[in-house]
Design a protein around this nucleic acid. Structure first.
Lengths: 210, 210
DNA sequence: CGGCGTCTTGAAGCCTGTCAAGATCAGTGG
DNA sequence: CCACTGATCTTGACAGGCTTCAAGACGCCG
């Protein structure tokens, strides 16, 4: 965790899986933008229940609200090996890019509240993988209808408010019906239309093989 | 907190229960700040399931992200009679107050994701009423350990991701154990410490009778 | 090759939902 | 002041989605 070799702060930091990018209460000095790897923010209840409240994918800002003088409330931990760019915060206020990231995060959290409150396990997970695939595509990291998906079933459970046992069963269902196949950290979507339908999303205009 | 006595735009608008303050896609011309009454934002799924994604109480800004060039994605409807102040948006960027409101909303949504994902019905509702009571207190609208609570059990269900039947049973449980009593749109908290404990919150420093 | 985390599977149970009916309450009009 | 109407609240019986518990299989790594 060496830093500040040069006076001008611009810098790439590297983290290993399960290493904290930031812990609650730390005062952040820069925006963190992921260059490579995945990270997540989460909350741990006293009895061990865990809920993941945000995922950060390559190209995305971690916690743009730091620019508004907000100290982190929840830890952020690397899910894979992560390389992150530390972008100095300007004193003159947050950039348009950062504010855009903030609004995107708000929207995403809103949708996730709807999922957790009113959708079934299958609908939730279908929606999750639609979202993640789109974000991976935005990062240029998809190959046809496939992309990396470095989450354990336990992670997925902690995103979806489920148990890993049930996640396993839902994934098997999706596999059996040829909707998508998630295996050894690799996602391949066989029927995007069906997946979007399951997620209760409007018909998708994404590319399909057929 | 009134300003802009000039003819230019400063204005109070009134809404009746179930009237929309704003619908998705409309371009907002001003910040809406509630002067009196409650409102909520929600999403309706095609099969009728409803999830409320935010509550707006007196003194609070509806949707501060409008200032960042974001069109509303979900409708906002009045739960009671509402009077709202239309605060003109400055072209020079969002005010510190509005940004503060934005960060608060992000935090609150985060907490609610944790509730919906990992907490039981009782824990969720206890947390909800703690939060609402604190916000009513901030608005100067509490009387001892009591305040107005103009939500139907159906509304509460749609906030908590539950059914109104189950909400009813949870409320009866809280009543029986002398934790709180919600009846005819009036909340009275008999045991704040117990309520906060149920909500899995850190010990509260709020006023108690004992 | 042993160990540890993850994945898979089965059986049993519970929290919450569904369905349905009656009670209570608020508002309206006579 | 009272009957009427629709929304909300309440209660009971039953069902189901998801969890819990437990054990075994698999895969990765030193």
């Amino acid at each position: 965790m060496k830093h500040f070799p040069s006076p001008s702060a611009a810098e790439i930091r590297q983290f290993r899986p399960n290493q904290y990018l930031v812990q609650p209460g730390e005062t952040p000095h820069a925006y963190l933008k992921l260059v490579e790897g995945w990270a997540c923010r989460f909350r741990l209840l006293t009895d061990g229940r865990r809920q993941i409240t945000a995922l950060f994918l390559p190209g995305e800002y971690c916690e743009p609200q730091w620019g508004l003088g907000q100290a982190p409330r929840q830890p952020i931990v690397a899910l894979t090996t992560v390389r992150a760019y530390s972008e100095p915060m300007s004193d003159t206020g947050a950039s348009a890019l950062v504010l855009q990231a903030l609004v995107t995060m708000l929207d995403r959290q809103n949708e996730w509240i709807v999922s957790l409150g009113r959708k079934s396990a299958t609908e939730r997970l279908a929606g999750l993988f639609c979202d993640l695939f789109d974000r991976m595509k935005a990062a240029g990291l998809t190959y046809g209808n496939q992309c990396a998906m470095p989450l354990t079933q336990i992670d997925i459970a902690d995103i979806g408010g489920l148990t890993s046992v049930h996640v396993n069963r839902v994934l098997q269902g999706l596999r059996k019906h040829r909707v998508m196949d998630l295996r050894s950290k690799w996602l391949s979507i066989q029927n995007m239309e069906a997946l979007r339908r399951l997620a209760l999303l409007p018909a998708g205009l994404t590319q399909t093989a057929a």
